[in-house]
């Protein structure tokens, strides 16, 4: 039982330390912001282009983003925006919706998280790994 006691203590220490940091020490400009504003964004996986369109999205910090993910391909894609805990399957020829709150400012990469092959697009060779994009979260209020 001793071992469990030690383990629980360690876990409690980590969590308490984390909570203490989060609510006491975290610099004000890094604390999550939620303005309640909603913003609708649609990101499309273009047919046989291995490309998200738009590949660059700009939003305001604190926005509640309603994300519509459209897959034009007849095979599956995935949408990974790990920093906001988004990890969605984009089934073939389907549209899925998800949402997140952009609590932090900065650039956040999203990528296709389901292997989807490769091909030539207008003379350019593209594949699954080229299928990335960036979400810019701008903190205009905090400036």
């Amino acid at each position: 039982m001793n071992k469990y006691f030690v383990l629980v203590i360690i876990i409690l220490l980590i969590v308490t330390g984390g909570l203490f940091y989060r609510f006491k020490l975290l610099p004000a400009d890094q604390r999550p912001v939620n303005t309640g504003q909603t913003k609708e964004i649609t990101i499309v996986a273009k047919k046989n282009e291995w490309r998200f369109v738009p590949g660059d999205v700009t939003i305001e910090r604190g926005d509640r983003v309603l994300l519509t993910l459209v897959n034009e391909d007849d095979y599956d894609h995935g949408f990974g925006l790990e920093d906001f805990g988004i990890s969605q399957k984009m089934p073939a020829l389907a549209t899925v919706k998800t949402e997140f709150v952009a609590t932090q400012a900065g650039s956040f990469t999203f990528f296709c998280s389901v292997p989807c092959g490769e091909g030539d697009v207008n003379g350019e060779h593209r594949d699954h790994y080229d299928m990335t994009g960036v979400i810019q979260v701008i903190d205009s209020a905090g400036q």
């Binding site: 383990l7 980590i14 920093d83 805990g85």
Partner: peptide, 22 residues
């Protein structure tokens, strides 16, 4: 087990990212 808790705490409390990300 401890490492996974550290990872969770690090992302959720340290980097203040959403719960689901951690």
């Amino acid at each position: 087990v401890v490492l996974s808790v550290i990872v969770f705490a690090g992302w959720v409390f340290g980097a203040a990212l959403p719960f689901s990300a951690g």
